[in-house]
Computed example of a mutant assay.
Amino acid sequence: MAEDAEKGPCVHVCILLIIGVCTIIWCSLWKESACDKFSKRIQEECSNYSPPANAQLRRRSFYDEVRRRCSLYSPPPDAPLRLDKDCNKIAEAFTNAVASKDPCYITAEDYLPLMELVNQEIPTDKVLLWSKTQELKEQYMKAGGKLLTQEHMLVSHIADNLMWCGNKGSSEVKYGLFREENGICPLYPTRVFWEVAAKWFAENNRGQVHVLLNGSSSESVAYNETSVFRCAEVPNLSLKVTELHAWVICDCGVNVRDSCSGASIKQLELDLRRYVRPDIVFTCEDMDRETFLQRVKNYGSSQSKSVLWNMIGVIRGMIRSIAELYFLFYEPFLSPTVLFSPEHCCDFHLVWT
């Protein structure tokens, strides 16, 4: 009993020491991420936000604008919707996500009913992510790029280039063209939406994924610490993603700020191995804008030629099959002798006897 009494204080001291050490280690390792800091900052700015005096409200209601955009949307052949498109329900869910709510306290959960209605398939090995390269992404699509971006999805189509906000004392939802500063609404509710949409998009990717990054930005490095790509897409990429190929694009005549050998790209690789899978294949390619777009055009041209030759091959095969059937069944009834080579469906001639 005496020995147990002596051990008691020692055990308590050891436990307290272990707890203390663990607390010190946890505090030293834990650090508020740049994403969290950015989110808090725009939320604080939201509380003090007032729209510019020249801000113009749209005549069409937010509900009607969402429904209009929804009705004009056609999904890509390889990205079908999982549910029948009901634009009335989609517009209602989007409106209800922000209507009669303080725009500074919108949460990801507010947008979840909308996300359930716009769910759709995302093809394997055909996705292009992008960060700080919106103009280049649009040029890529116009040049005939075959990879699908988030803008090909219904959820992004109905919100593209817009910003919006509700008001706790009103059911009206204001909206206008997207601007990071001096827009008709504070940035916060729109930022929350894009993080939700980006998270969904990332979670449903499979196979090989590509990303366009800006190596000539005057504002930040290629793998920007507060971008939607870094804050929402990379941490939520599916475990089914096996490879990520990054293009770091620079503009000719502009100082190159970042490249594949830069610290931010090395951090991207570390994050991929941390969040996605340790064995993910990561490759990176530095390229100037003109070369990149020319490669896209050349690839699209070669693909078109390949499709054309495949069609010609199919047509020739059909002609050959029809010719073989014709001469098989009707040759006995022909007065001339038909000399026909199946290997050369059109290389036949008649010999009159």
Score class of each variant (00 low, 15 high):
C70I: 04
K37L: 14
L81C: 13
L154F: 01
S50C: 04
F38C: 03
I42M: 02
R257P: 14
Q208H: 13
I312S: 10
D258R: 03
A246M: 07
I249Q: 04
S301T: 13
I158Q: 01
C70H: 04
E181G: 09
E3R: 07
I122M: 11
F62E: 03
V296S: 09
H157Y: 13
S301P: 10
Q267K: 14
F178M: 07
D64V: 06
M153H: 06
H245N: 11
V196P: 07
L237N: 11
R206F: 05
L187N: 06
V98M: 06
T107A: 09
I42D: 05
V351T: 10
G20T: 08
P278E: 04
A198K: 08
L187H: 08
A323L: 10
P52M: 00
V66D: 07
Q43P: 07
E172A: 10
I315D: 11
N119G: 15
P9D: 01
A246P: 01
D271T: 11
S156T: 07
A2H: 13
Y73C: 09
L29C: 13
C284N: 04
A197L: 07
L237Y: 09
C260F: 02
A53W: 01
Y188A: 04
A108C: 02
L212F: 06
A55P: 03
V228W: 02
M153T: 08
R41Y: 09
P278G: 06
S220W: 01
Y326T: 14
L334C: 09
K7E: 15
C70Q: 07
S302W: 15
W164G: 00
E44S: 11
N224C: 12
P336F: 14
T283W: 03
A198W: 00
M287E: 12
E121G: 09
L147R: 12
D125C: 07
P342M: 05
L187P: 00
F282K: 02
D125G: 06
Y326Q: 12
W200K: 13
D78H: 06
R69E: 04
G176W: 01
P235V: 06
S61T: 10
R316Q: 14
F329C: 15
W164H: 01
Y105D: 11
L29T: 08
I122E: 05
W247D: 05
C185E: 01
L154E: 05
E324N: 11
N54A: 12
M311Y: 15
I15M: 13
S50H: 07
R273W: 08
V66S: 05
D84I: 12
V196M: 03
G262T: 02
S306H: 12
A5Y: 10
G8S: 13
M318Y: 10
L128W: 02
C284W: 00
S61A: 04
W164Y: 04
W30H: 14
F329S: 15
V296F: 07
K297I: 15
L57W: 05
D110F: 07
D271H: 13
S170W: 02
N182K: 09
N214S: 12
C185A: 07
W164Q: 03
E324K: 09
P113V: 05
V98N: 05
W247I: 04
S33I: 00
V351D: 03
S28C: 11
L114I: 04
D347S: 12
P77K: 11
Y275V: 06
D78I: 00
Q303M: 12
D271C: 02
T107I: 02
S301A: 14
K126V: 04
R295M: 14
